[in-house]
Design a protein around this nucleic acid. Structure first.
Length: 350
DNA sequence: AAGCTGACCAACCGCACAAAC
DNA sequence: GGTTTGTGCGGTTGGTCAGCT
């Protein structure tokens, strides 16, 4: 059975909201509160769909919204959260005060995804944020450059620019948007996850929901998840794997209880690797990585569990910081733990 | 100056899910 | 248990703006 339309669409207005409509909606909600979106347009006297009213209120009219450019700090947070959570914009927005999912989604699609795409991790000479990398054969015919590209043009000295006022405004705009908060690190030693993703793509095994890890480009501070992916990669080197259910796009992993084996499973239950305790010890003696149960348990592709573990009880927006030398530094209220991911997991603090 | 083009972003659309009936 | 309703989410669209030729 199909869902009924959210409202009777005939005769309803679409497109941009006028100031008058905004005023009506704002006053109505101030008097009657949020909710009952389906009946709201009729009661308020708006020729709009209820969903449209809800969207307008949530994204633009709420008093607690923060307008203006995304700060460098916010941008860095978005990148980190997206690396862990994927396109779960509402969850990401929940950790950015005053920002909406729509705003973050738009910002990601128009700014960040392109920025990250244009960083070639294998080329340390590549300039981050350089637009049109890889399109050298296609001569640009027109159109507005992205803000980073305009900044770059400015830095290279555009003697032909005629309008100094516009030029100055663009410089200000670019500076305010980019600031110094986000550091794109072109150092190859910090690009293991990128390499890993590329390898997985080449091997045709990128089928899990963390294809979004592609965006986990060499920003300083790899996520825990990418670290775990790297561990998986090492295990694959020990025993080549193929994910159990590539086609579904919903491959998951779980630990096996049988015989104390440590296993990775696909959604259809097919075991793709299993190491019992002895094998694990042997592999570790050979200096090879293995996956332990606690590691596997922690890998929750649905991310719900991860959300709780990361955020529950932690008021700070991002509960840890990374140190490239020592590993992860965790700060969570009463304790501080320094050490590697292994320490963190085995100490059971997550 | 005009047309073309890409960037940006507000808004729409369809789907999923939970609650109510 | 099946259906309806309300709400939220993420993907996509299309209008507007501004730089380029």
């Amino acid at each position: 059975m199909g869902r009924a339309p959210c409202c009777e669409k005939i005769g309803l207005k679409k497109g941009r909201w006028t100031a008058e409509e905004d005023d009506i909606l704002t006053k109505y909600i101030a008097a009657n509160g949020e909710g009952s979106w389906r009946s709201l347009p009729k009661n308020a006297g708006l020729l709009r769909c209820g969903k449209s009213c809800r969207l307008r209120w949530i994204n633009y009219l709420r008093s607690d919204l923060k307008r203006g450019n995304i700060s460098p700090e916010e941008e860095e947070t978005i990148i980190k959260l997206h690396a862990s959570l994927g396109n779960r914009w509402s969850v990401i927005a929940g950790h950015l005060s005053g920002r909406t999912d729509n705003e973050i989604k738009n910002y990601w699609n128009s700014h960040l995804s392109r920025k990250l795409q244009n960083v070639d991790p294998t080329d340390s000479n590549d300039k981050p944020f350089d637009v049109d990398v890889g399109n050298v054969s296609t001569k640009r015919k027109g159109g507005r450059l992205s803000k980073p590209a305009r900044k770059k043009n400015k830095q290279e000295g555009d003697a032909t620019r005629k309008d100094d006022k516009v030029h100055e405004n663009h410089e200000k705009s670019a500076q305010s948007e980019e600031g110094e908060g986000i550091v794109i690190d072109s150092d190859p030693q910090h690009t293991s996850n990128v390499t890993f993703v590329q390898q997985r793509q080449q091997n045709g095994v990128l089928g899990g929901p963390n294809e979004e890890l592609e965006c986990d480009l060499p920003c300083r501070g790899l996520t825990m998840e990418s670290e775990l992916w790297a561990k998986l990669d090492e295990v694959e080197a020990v025993e080549p794997l193929s994910w159990a259910d590539e086609g579904s796009g919903s491959m998951s992993m779980s630990s096996s209880e049988e015989s104390g084996a440590h296993a990775v499973k696909g959604v259809d239950g097919e075991k793709v690797v299993a190491l019992n305790g002895r094998e694990e010890e042997e592999e570790e003696q050979k200096g090879r990585a293995t996956i332990r149960n606690e590691d596997v348990q922690w890998m929750d592709w649905e991310m719900e569990d991860m959300d709780f573990r990361l955020w529950d009880g932690v008021n700070d927006m991002w509960p840890w910081t990374w140190d490239n030398e020592t590993g992860v530094v965790v700060e969570d209220g009463g304790y501080q733990l320094e050490g590697t991911l292994d320490n963190w997991l085995s100490d059971g603090l997550i």
